[in-house]
Structures are given as structure tokens and as C-alpha cells.
Amino acid sequence: MKIKDYVGIGIVMAAVAVAPKLVGNEYYLGVLIFAALNCLTCTGLCLLMGYAGQISIGHGAFIAVGAYTSAVLTTKLGWSPWTAMGCGVILAAGIAVFMGLPTMRLKGHYLAMATLGFASIIHIVAVAAVDVTGGPSGITGIPRLQLFGFVLNSDTRNFYFYWGIVVAGLLLAVNLIHSRVGRGLQAIHGSEDAAASLGVNIAVDKIKVLVLSAVYASISGSLYAHYVLFIDPGPFDVMHSVLLVTMVAVGGLHNIWGAFSGALLLSLLPEGLSFLSEYLQTFDIRYRTDYDTLIYGGILLLIMLFLPEGLFEGLSRLLKTVFSLRRKWGGGLARHAE
């Protein structure tokens, strides 16, 4: 198990190293940076959904908390981006503890609705609290990140830094999964009663993992703010939270690599679709970006109906079957030849 994970991280690192050379185009580099943000959030969300079996339909709200804390503290109070990011993390963690409290007493998926409600509230506040958040027109002039005097002012620099954080996030998550804590979380997902009978404090562990995933989301929000340098409530609506759930579920709930690939895949999907639409236009078929929602929903539904373990596990199982079939076929042919 562990070896597979290190191979996975190795592959990601290698891909990150060569990607800017291969892509070479600022626009696509930007797309990959947005993908990095989604991958980071989904890694955290997967710990919550796939490993502890708790669903959050409001993770966009934690991203918003990170992004707005960073934006407000850096532009209005002139704090350093790093301190602001830390404050965002603390705020998000605090809110997560608060959100998690009802789940301490209740079985099942109250968290889903509580987080959805919370996400809607955050969106309403972001629009309505004009004095703090700038309302619908948002906050401009967010400073760039600096790293040891290096200003992250080119897309290549940003790309390396952001993907570096994704790799670190993945590494931490993988470590956690293969530890006592990670096993406890998986046990909660398997059977809450049995986990409790073995001494797993299910209430506290659920809150802890919610906090952890909120921290991932908050960091990704801060990074978003410092990359686009302007934020408004638009990207933090409930639909984005649902999209994050879709990414994790499509890639594979029960596997961190599944969630990671799901996030990567669906982040790149709109680009793929715009390619497709150009191609379709040559046949006089008009594709509109309006259809994107429909396509996301369709993919999610198909995956949940036919590949509930997600694309990642599903494909690897398919490959295994194909290989074993080929071996059988090969054997059969060999015998035939004899």
C-alpha cells in the first residue's frame, strides 16, 4: 500500500517538474494552477468523505473563509499574506469545530445539510456585508505572495509553488491514512458501533477530520486570493461546493488518489469541452458552456450508478480484468497451438 502511494507522489512530482516545459502557454499554466487549488481542497474533502464517511456540501464556504480572510487582512489592515493565511486557517478550523458539534450527538449525515446551510449563509454574507467583503463588486488589489524575498509574479513560479503545496498536502494525507488515526477514520466509515467498541472516539475524530479538511480548503482559498488578486462572491456559491463533491465522488470516494485524479480531471474538463465545441462547430453543432452543468451532473450520476467506487478504482479494476482475460486468452491460444 505505502509503496504505491510513494510511487503516486513520485509520478505527481515528475509531472509537475516537466509540465511547464510541455505546456509552455501562460493560459494553460493558469488552468493547471486552478486545478492545483481544486486538488488541494479535494484531498482534504476526501479525508472527510471517503475515509470518515461524512459528507460536506459546503466546502466552498471554507474556501471562501480562507480567501476573504486573506483578502481583507492584507488589503484593509496591510498584514503579511502569510499571517493572513494563518488567520484564515484558524478561523476555518474554529468554524469547523462549531459545525461539527451537532454531529457529535447524531448519527449519519446531518453534517451534509448543516454545511450546505453554512455555505449559503457565507455566500449571503459575502454579498450583503458590503463594508467588509465589498459586496458583489468584491475586493481588489490583493498582494502577491512572497517567498524568501522571491515575489511569485510569474505563472511558472506560481505553478511550482502551488503544486508544491499540493504535493505536501498529498503527502500529509497519505501519512495520515496509514496511521492509527487514519485507520480509526476508516473504521468509523465501516461501522460506527464497531469502531466505538474498539475505543475509537467517533465524535471527536469526526470533528478532527472535518477541521483538517476545512484547513485544506481554507489554505486553498487563501492561495486562490493571492493568485487572482481579486475576489468576489461569484466563485463561492453552493454550486462550487457541489462541484467539489462531484470531483471527489467521480474520482473515487474511498481512495485519496481517486479524489486527486477526479479533481484534476474535472478541473481540466471545461478546457476539453471547449476543444470539443470547436470541433463540433465544424459540423455546425453549436455547443454552449451552459451545457457544462448538465455534463457534470450526468457524469456524477453515471459514476454513482455504474462505478460507485469511482473512476480510479473502476479503471484499475477494469485493467486488471483485461490483463487476466488476456492471460487466459493467451494460455488458451498456446494450448490450442499445441
Binding site: L176, S179, R180, V181, R183, G184, Q186, A187, H189, G190, S191, D193, A194, A195, L198, G199, V200, K208, L212, H254
Partner: peptide, 25 residues
Amino acid sequence: VQVFSNMTVLENVMVGRHLRSRNGM
């Protein structure tokens, strides 16, 4: 029976050692 069907047999028993260590997240 409530085995953790999402984990391997060995991992199931390893959960049983949960209380024998104290390491946190």
C-alpha cells in the same frame, strides 16, 4: 457482524490496537 468491510483483514485487527497507542493527527 460488523467487520470494517472497506479495510483488509489485517487492518481490521490493527484498529483493535487503537487504544494501545496515543499518537494524534
